[in-house]
Design a protein around this nucleic acid. Structure first.
Lengths: 333, 333
DNA sequence: CGTCCTTATGTTTTCGTATTCATACATTAT
DNA sequence: ATAATGTATGAATACGAAAACATAAGGACG
């Protein structure tokens, strides 16, 4: 409410002394420190951050930029970020771009306007060039989705290998006709996962069929519709690998709506290991990302960048894991 | 990067003129406005918000305080808030308290420190007194969960009536033995919904059984376990009303795991109409809250409060709706 | 022709804090 | 006793922008 001057006057000292107390400078006699602390408490004085930040030219705040609050891995990533941030005296703000490029640019203005010291981008509509340009001047870390650029850190999993492992799991169960529901083409992970899918099939000597690779928006209905379409065809896949758990559950329910059984008639694999993957009947096999650790690592990288420590390796990959549940099982045929 | 002085010098005018251009004052000749705009663009000048906000004593930013990013109605509420905020030149920051009281208090310090102009609280660990105290000095709106206090606005649905309607729906289908999975007792909606449940049963002349009212954390597993427990008892409920969709799906799957059929052996009703309610097999009947509109209304109330316009009625209730799906059906017996 | 508005611009102060610089006093060394 | 050091404090300035205040030029009007 009242400025530092008021505290100073009330305590009978100068503003400099109050400021020194606030920032625990050793250059204050114990008795005056006590006196000042006392009046600060009595007046319920809270330093105005705007004044402080203007003076210090840092806010100790960072922003997490996500396409949406329900982005599947967001909640856990946030916890990881949050925990590291708190330990280091930083506050975390979340902003959703709703996949709107203008909106996103507006939010990123917060860097230029000094509202936040740095940004963790979970997924972005920015091009690699735009991103690199921005990262030249500001501290930016990509988490999960990322573009390979020179100036920004990236923390993610090896999406190509993860997809390879997921499809290899299906191959090991005897599946030969495996379809894939990709994510949107705008996402960098999408291409990597398709690559992994192709490599797995090819290394098993199986021809990739273009009609069995379809794009989706990661949503439930999309998976449902694709499963229905595929399974009604004369020759249909016996397994489907999805880029999200929601589409995977859609595939399961779509298959069952046709009277098929999961996993006997068709096996399904999801991605992310979200809570929903357990709510499906049967529960779905999925690729687990270390969501919390991704958040932690991203925040740690950001701190490093904020401190001006130049990390030599800017791309950090954390291990994934195939979580096997009842939606996949050994194939007899 | 560079301050307004630099722009002024480069353009050959005073800082006041540049400031006037920035704030489109009419007191600038068209030619000089052009000239200044030109150099602003050329220098890629962005006004430093800290300076501006310090001077203006407002940030045009607001915070949304939620227990968690995955709070069921959060994503849509956010969109509603966001849309209204944007139209009015406000930026929206989301912070999650993780249901930690200390954390929440720290976040609310952002009000005192002038980092945000106001707060929308989606659910809180604060007591009514703490909240009212804070609302005396700052602009605060409660959205969804709320305490009845004098100084803060509240935007919500009539939880008592919503529960009454949901249970009435079950009664109308012929159910007489209806159990309820409550939310946590800390939530204000919890008591209201239980009240509605009781009123519905009583007005149908049915005795309320204490063992058929159980508390939960809104999570899937909780619903699953409760359904299994109830349905294994000698005399079991034929319908379950849940305070969240996740517990409802848990109930469905728990029942099915015992070989029961939904809705024939047991009907299930959820709450919130989240995306998961459609991912269940069968899809679940649920109580829809106008999530987006709750967000809109909350932001509008906040704007009103920020402008110092005293609304006479501080509690706003929006209409709910029972969405009937396959998890409930007419009972033969 | 001088006074009185308008219009357009420049100069100075202000917001609240941190920091640099200056100062006063006490202590120790010479 | 005086200079040198150290400790504790106050005064003044800087941060960047907005706004209050000041001024100058150009008409309108008596």
């Amino acid at each position: 409410m009242r400025p530092i001057q008021f505290v100073a006057k009330t305590a009978g000292v100068s503003v400099a002394t109050v400021s020194r107390v606030l920032n625990n400078s050793p250059l204050v006699k114990e008795s005056t420190r006590k006196k000042v602390m006392e009046t600060i408490r009595a007046l319920e004085y809270e330093p105005n951050s705007l004044g402080r930040e203007l003076r210090r030219a840092e806010t100790r705040r960072i922003m997490v930029l996500t396409p949406s609050l329900v982005f599947p891995i967001m909640a856990d990533v946030y916890k990881g970020i949050q925990d590291v941030a708190q330990k280091n005296g930083y506050q975390v703000l979340v902003c959703a771009s709703e996949d709107d490029h203008d909106k996103e640019e507006e939010l990123l203005q917060m860097l230029k306007k000094k509202i936040v010291d740095g940004v963790i981008i979970v997924a972005s509509t920015l091009s690699a060039e735009e991103l690199d340009q921005l990262a030249k001047d500001y501290s930016i870390v990509q988490c999960s989705e990322y573009e390979q650029v020179q100036h920004a850190y990236s923390v993610s999993v090896d999406n190509e290998q993860a997809a390879f492992d997921a499809v290899s799991h299906l191959l090991s169960l005897g599946h030969r006709r495996i379809a894939m529901v990709k994510g949107g083409n705008a996402k960098s992970s999408s291409a990597a996962r398709e690559q992994g899918y192709r490599r797995a099939l090819e290394s098993a000597g199986i021809e990739v069929r273009q009609e069995w690779i379809r794009e989706s928006d990661y949503e439930y209905q999309n998976g449902y519709d694709l499963a229905v379409e595929w399974l009604q065809a004369a020759e249909h896949p016996t397994a489907i690998f999805c880029s999200s758990d929601a589409t995977a559950i859609g595939c399961v329910n779509g298959a069952i709506s046709l009277g098929k059984s999961v996993p006997d008639d068709v096996a399904v694999v999801g991605f992310d290991d979200t809570v929903e993957s357990l709510m499906s009947r049967p529960p779905i096999t999925t690729v687990r990302q270390p969501k919390y650790d991704l958040g932690r690592a991203a925040m740690e990288a950001l701190l490093q960048s904020l401190r001006g420590e130049a990390g030599e390796n800017k791309t950090i990959l954390l291990p994934h894991e195939i979580v096997i549940r009842e939606s996949t099982a050994k194939r007899s045929g």
